[in-house]
Design a protein around this nucleic acid. Structure first.
Length: 273
DNA sequence: GAGCCTCGAGATCT
DNA sequence: CTCGAGGCTC
């Protein structure tokens, strides 16, 4: 790639035929109006880490988008209008559609932290969503927060503060939030974290290697619910490294830095308070 | 010492 | 991205 040009055209977007540009390791369509962006934002919304709607994966979202059933995020919660029609689609039946609608209904309860991540506010991901949800408790309080108020929060700097202010100043975004509220989505946040101190409280953990009895995501969630933090890399700020089998460089670094190491058995024992 | 800048480390974002 | 450390100026 030549440095003289701002970007290099590679190929065309399969959806709208506009050129694609390469940014980091991925290709992006230059067309701001490209429907692929809408599809991707819907996929992100329904994904496991966000609203966790089972039965609404990327392929089905793309199909439903192209067929006109889901054009926007609120449309997901209006899908029940088409229930009889959907059951007739190839590959769907009574049971799969009912399961899908159940999962959509269930996702309404999810809560503000994941909802903030799901709607795609720039720089607001899983962690920042939780920080904001915890601090403001409901979406109206967040929507009326000032830049100064946001920037004063730990781990929120000027860039994220501005991004949040901009998001809630946008009429389209506000309209969508209102619709979601009317459709019955939970716009509040109740912490499921334990109040009392645990061995995990305030400590930073790093997971490495393979754990047999629990997935990495579940382990992370449990640690966080018990008041701990998880990070991806070992540093002098790491308190404990949890090492499954076949652990690699992170294990070695923990040894070098003299950081406490728990094996899976020790970790399970600690979870079992 | 307050104010401003740059830089690196660590963590996060989609 | 955020933030704190360290250097520099006034």
């Amino acid at each position: 790639m030549s440095d003289a040009r701002p970007f290099e055209f590679i190929k065309e977007c399969p959806i709208c035929k506009s050129p694609l540009i390469k940014k980091d390791a991925s290709y992006y369509c230059v067309n701001e109006e490209c429907p692929k962006k809408d599809i991707e934002s819907l996929i992100h919304f329904a994904a496991r880490d966000t609203m966790n709607i089972i039965g609404l994966g990327d392929a089905i979202i793309e199909d439903f988008f192209n067929m006109g059933y889901i054009k926007s995020i609120p449309d997901i919660y209006r899908l029940d209008r088409y229930v009889e029609e959907l059951k007739l689609l190839e590959g769907f039946g009574e049971k799969s559609i009912n399961n899908l609608l159940d999962s959509i209904e269930e996702s309404k309860k999810t809560g503000l932290d994941r909802l903030l991540f799901a709607v795609g506010i720039r720089y607001v991901g899983k962690k920042t969503g939780k920080i904001l949800a915890k601090r403001f408790k409901n979406i109206d309080a967040l929507a009326s927060a000032s830049f100064e108020e946001l920037e004063a929060i730990r781990d929120i700097g000027d860039v994220i503060a501005q991004s949040v202010v901009d998001y809630f100043n946008d009429e389209d975004n506000l309209k969508m939030i209102t619709e979601l509220k009317e459709l019955g989505l939970n716009m509040g946040y109740e912490s499921n974290e334990v109040e009392e101190e645990t061995i995990f409280t305030g400590k930073t953990f790093v997971l490495t290697g393979t754990l047999d009895s629990i997935t990495r995501d579940d382990a992370k969630e449990k640690i966080e619910n018990l008041g701990g933090n998880c990070s991806g890399s070992v540093s002098k700020k790491t308190d404990v490294v949890i090492a499954g089998h076949d652990a690699g460089s992170k294990y070695q670094k923990a040894v070098d830095l003299g950081i406490e190491i728990w094996d899976e058995a020790k970790f399970l024992e600690m979870l079992n308070i």
